[in-house]
């Protein structure tokens, strides 16, 4: 008949007051408390970073860029969050309107990694054009603005470009998508 493996009991647990086997490790405990303090400081920094917008959705995340003559102005967020809705808005000056319409070329990255869900207002036409899409809106007078509702589908650094066809003005930016 098979027998279980055995070994004699050893008094291996360290004792407190030379009488109670507790296994207390004061040196480790003090190191752990120092580690805990560091972690709490890290937690505080994470909270501060989030409130300030370093992780997106806060004041520091908001950014804007415009062309030299102000024909096109881009309001966007430097830091986005994975699969979380966000809006990028492009404002157009009077020079952006040509033949009663605005034509805007947008790189494919706005569609794919940055996850464009819809465009407000809806463009009259959208044409595949190289590595991007050319959108056209009828426009009578300014101010005009177009918003892209985004929900990024890939974390990490993402680059996008928008180009105004009437003037050739281009804005290229990098954004960071938090996982």
């Amino acid at each position: 008949m098979a027998t279980p493996r055995t070994r004699p009991v050893e008094d291996s647990i360290s004792k407190v007051g030379n009488e109670l086997a507790v296994g207390e490790d004061l040196a480790f405990q003090r190191r752990w408390w120092r580690f805990e303090t560091t972690i709490w400081i890290l937690f505080a920094l994470i909270l501060a970073a989030d409130l300030s917008g370093i992780f997106g959705r806060g004041p520091l995340a908001k950014a804007s860029a415009k062309t030299a003559d102000g024909t096109m102005k881009l309001d966007y967020e430097r830091v986005l969050r994975y699969e979380t809705p966000d809006v990028m808005t492009i404002h157009f000056g009077p020079n952006a309107i040509q033949n009663g319409r605005i034509e805007l070329w947008v790189s494919e990255s706005v569609i794919k990694p940055l996850g464009n869900q819809r465009i407000i207002p809806q463009p009259k036409s959208s044409i595949l054009d190289g590595d991007g899409i050319l959108y056209t809106w009828p426009a009578a007078s300014h101010p005009n603005s177009v918003s892209f509702a985004l929900a990024p589908s890939a974390p990490g650094s993402q680059k996008f470009t928008v180009r105004l066809e009437s003037t050739g003005d281009t804005i290229t930016r990098h954004v960071w998508v938090m996982p």
């Binding site: 296994g23 207390e24 490790d25």
Partner: peptide, 14 residues
């Protein structure tokens, strides 16, 4: 194991 579980701590003694 010590990092994961910690060690018992004596709070009151004699």
């Amino acid at each position: 194991g010590l990092m994961l579980d910690g060690a018992p701590v004596v709070l009151l003694m004699h």
